[in-house]
């Protein structure tokens, strides 16, 4: 299969997505449409399956041997869980930034360049590294020490390095799994500003525990919660101002106003 880049309103959408871990039904019946070049926040209480859904978008759940996925995840009209789809191709188009900054134990330059190299990049690597670091708002801080270890940077810088690393392979979508939860408020704000910048040409899906962050940064918000038998489901989805001001669901309202969660 070859994933074609086509003009469409939705970057990715799920249809009746169900996730099981062994016998445990983790997430049920998620129907979610992610708008192109917008920021979508997935919020909800702990254990509601928002990270599980996020990891379905680039088949990261494949790493968990007991995980089983039912339903469709449509990327450019193609179900990425079809047997003829190679997860490597999916991940090349849909990058990911993790909760804890996890640069490779390599130099800053190599951290950014590695992904492009293994994906067969044939252009000017130096230019690509510079461009990616500039897009991640890190270039000015590291341009004089590209040979230094990725771990010599501060936590916030490391996370921006990870974003630069993800940007270097030119993905259509970047998944962010609580990208600021390990950072201090100032570093978190910088990441949020960066997300705004990036959303001009990249679709961002972000899982966050921080509701103010979701309100500040996202265009759309999906609220997830759990049934009494701990199965997660999507309670409500809509434009962020609507979710935070006039939620349709009582449960959403209780969560947003801090009465539960």
């Amino acid at each position: 299969m070859n994933i074609q880049t086509t003009a469409a309103t939705y970057a990715i959408e799920t249809r009746n997505l169900n996730v099981y871990y062994g016998d445990f039904h983790a997430v049920k019946d998620v129907n979610l449409r992610i708008h192109k070049n917008k920021i979508t926040a997935l919020i909800g209480p702990s254990g509601c399956g928002k990270s599980t859904v996020l990891r379905c978008f680039n088949r990261m759940n494949d790493l968990i041997p007991s995980a089983r996925i039912e339903g469709d995840v449509l990327f450019h009209g193609k179900n990425i869980y079809d047997p003829d789809v190679d997860p490597v191709q999916v991940r090349r188009r849909i990058g990911m930034v993790f909760q804890k900054p996890n640069p490779f134990p390599k130099s800053i330059y190599d951290n950014v360049a590695w992904g492009a190299k293994i994906n067969g990049f044939k252009g000017d690597l130096d230019a690509l590294v510079q461009e990616s670091l500039e897009r991640a708002a890190l270039w000015n801080e590291v341009k004089d020490k590209l040979d230094a270890s990725g771990y010599s940077l501060s936590g916030g810088q490391q996370q921006r390095l990870c974003i630069a690393r993800a940007l270097a392979v030119k993905p259509d979508i970047i998944l962010m799994d609580e990208p600021t939860s390990a950072l201090d408020p100032i570093a978190s704000l910088r990441i949020e500003e960066l997300m705004w910048e990036l959303a001009q040409d990249v679709t961002i899906i972000v899982v966050t525990h921080n509701m103010q962050q979701a309100a500040r940064v996202s265009d759309y918000t999906a609220f997830f919660t759990v049934t009494p038998d701990r199965t997660g489901y999507m309670e409500e989805f809509g434009e962020t101002p609507q979710i935070f001001t006039t939620p349709a669901s009582k449960i959403t309202e209780d969560y947003i106003t801090g009465r539960f969660g």
Partner: peptide, 22 residues
């Protein structure tokens, strides 16, 4: 750390590239 494997796979590396490089 599992984080290295995830970071590598998340960039579109194959399993073998992940093992060999990280």
């Amino acid at each position: 750390p599992q984080a290295f494997r995830e970071a590598s796979l998340g960039l579109g590396a194959t399993k073998w590239q992940t093992i060999w490089h990280h």
